[in-house]
């Protein structure tokens, strides 16, 4: 039996909006530590890792570790029916082949039950090493989303380079090329508007912009985004989920042949 009650139901709504276009079907794993998901897109170029820690739920009952296969589009359709201020509860009985999403309005005057069929999805979990990254950029998530959107109107790949000057996003295409340089800026009145760059050594990697634009659908989850780069690893684009966990997108680089 599992029953997870999330007072900030809109977090789950935003999570589904962030992943439903990247991954179609995925297993949600439920254990005593929390509610998580790890899945690759169909081309195995990107991977999304979600963690919602059990402490972040108002009520978290998970009698035994369980993995529930869900179609994320269908799940998103059901969560769209939840109000932004609704309390969302995820319920499933042991051995059941369905999961129920319950939406309660803040003043408890409306309660909705949406039951969805579960699927059998055989997915292997990948080992993601905790790595030392050559460069870690923290910046406003809206700014990162704007840069990815703007550059994708010029080219389809972005070179992200971190030097002591700052972080540079470059692209080129038929009509020309574009460079956006962001410098460290901590003299802002609101911390979430600051850009900080931690560089251990210069790094420069090339990525497909369409995946980056897909990742920025998670922008509503956090005012800041963290981009961690290392020359031998996929980039990690991370959005923290308020006091609950995170959603991390890993993107494999394009390698000069």
């Amino acid at each position: 039996m599992l029953e997870l009650r999330l007072v900030q139901g809109n977090l789950l709504k935003k999570v589904l909006e962030a992943v439903k276009d990247l991954v179609t079907d995925a297993n949600f794993d439920c254990s005593s530590t929390g509610f998580s998901l790890q899945a690759m897109d169909s081309s195995h170029v990107a991977l999304v890792a979600l963690l919602l820690r059990s402490e972040g739920f108002e009520h978290y009952r998970c009698d035994r570790n369980v993995s529930m296969g869900m179609n994320l589009n269908n799940m998103a359709k059901m969560l769209k029916c939840a109000g932004n201020d609704d309390i969302v509860t995820i319920k499933a009985d042991d051995g059941s082949d369905t999961v129920t999403f319950m939406f309660e309005s803040p003043n408890q005057d409306k309660i909705a039950d949406f039951e969805m069929k579960l699927m059998d999805i055989d997915s292997e979990h990948l080992g993601i090493p905790e790595a030392e990254y050559h460069a870690i950029v923290r910046m406003p998530s809206s700014e990162f989303a704007r840069i990815c959107k703007d550059l994708s109107s010029i080219g389809d790949t972005v070179v992200i380079s971190v030097t002591k000057e700052g972080v540079k996003f470059s692209t080129r295409g038929d009509i020309g090329n574009a460079n956006v340089v962001c410098r460290q800026n901590t003299t802002v009145d609101k911390p979430e508007e600051s850009t900080t760059i931690e560089m251990h050594e210069p790094v420069s990697l090339t990525f497909a912009l369409r995946y980056m634009n897909s990742f920025t659908k998670a922008t509503p989850l956090s005012s800041t985004v963290t981009i961690s780069l290392s020359s031998e690893l996929p980039v990690v684009v991370e959005y923290k989920i308020a006091e609950m966990g995170y959603i991390r997108f890993y993107l494999a680089p394009k390698i000069e042949d």
Binding site: V45, H125, Y250
Partner: peptide
């Protein structure tokens, strides 16, 4: 040109 690598080239199956 640039060849797109895949995640599974970097992260092994558990």
């Amino acid at each position: 040109g640039c060849n797109q690598s895949t995640i599974t080239e970097f992260f092994g199956k558990l």
